[in-house]
Design a protein around this nucleic acid. Structure first.
Lengths: 103, 103
DNA sequence: AAAAATATGTTGACACCCGACATATGTCGT
DNA sequence: ACGACATATGTCGGGTGTCAACATATTTTT
């Protein structure tokens, strides 16, 4: 079992938003800002780069628009691999906090 | 109050080790590995770059060797600013985990 | 009809982080 | 005395992520 690479804050929130049900880039940007109380902002450049990257990693997948939806949206869903990458990251964060507790 | 920048895993562990009492680079590397159960390894390149950077940020300060100690060690201590940077990072991690709980 | 919100994409530059390598001294067993 | 290993710091190149700024187009609100 290889050690899981640390993930950036932006990537983490993108996966988190998708796990919670957001479906397109702009929605993820808004949801992240709301979730974090305005502390985390994902710029469009970061968002776009991240989607390309995550598709390559197999963490997310683009799906077809539903009938009647605004078709200029690009919809994404989390894959099983994406879900486990998110879980691994959550474990990593927890371990980091546990290590801090002894201070 | 400006939003605190995310910190890398390595930087976090370096501050954590200094808060716990480690005093020189090599000691921090070993302590990090032990603390994390072997999951986190800080390479010497990371360590060196980090000390330079953190001194510039005012997070750590180099102190003189005690009499009789092996004088090729370079000893570092956490500054008040370093301590609050660490606290800010811990809050950020906690917030990230709280945001995940609702999933 | 204008303005603002929605929505995605492109580019360039910078900071950062890490792995691999390099160097030197101290210590331990044989 | 010797080799091997642990201790300890420093150098360098490459890759990645991030953001600002710009670009474009549609939809909703005023």
């Amino acid at each position: 079992m290889k050690r899981s690479e640390p993930m950036s804050e932006s990537y983490y929130y993108i996966l988190l938003c998708l796990a919670k049900g957001a479906t397109h880039g702009y929605g993820i940007m808004q949801m992240t800002e709301k979730l974090s109380g305005g502390d985390v902002t994902i710029g469009s450049g970061t968002m776009y780069g991240a989607t390309v990257n995550m598709i390559k990693k197999g963490w997310i997948r683009e799906v077809m628009s539903a009938e009647g939806g605004p078709e200029r949206r690009r919809l994404y869903v989390l894959t099983d691999e994406g879900r486990s990458a998110l879980r691994a990251e959550i474990s990593r964060l927890r371990r980091m906090l546990e290590n801090a507790e002894e201070v």
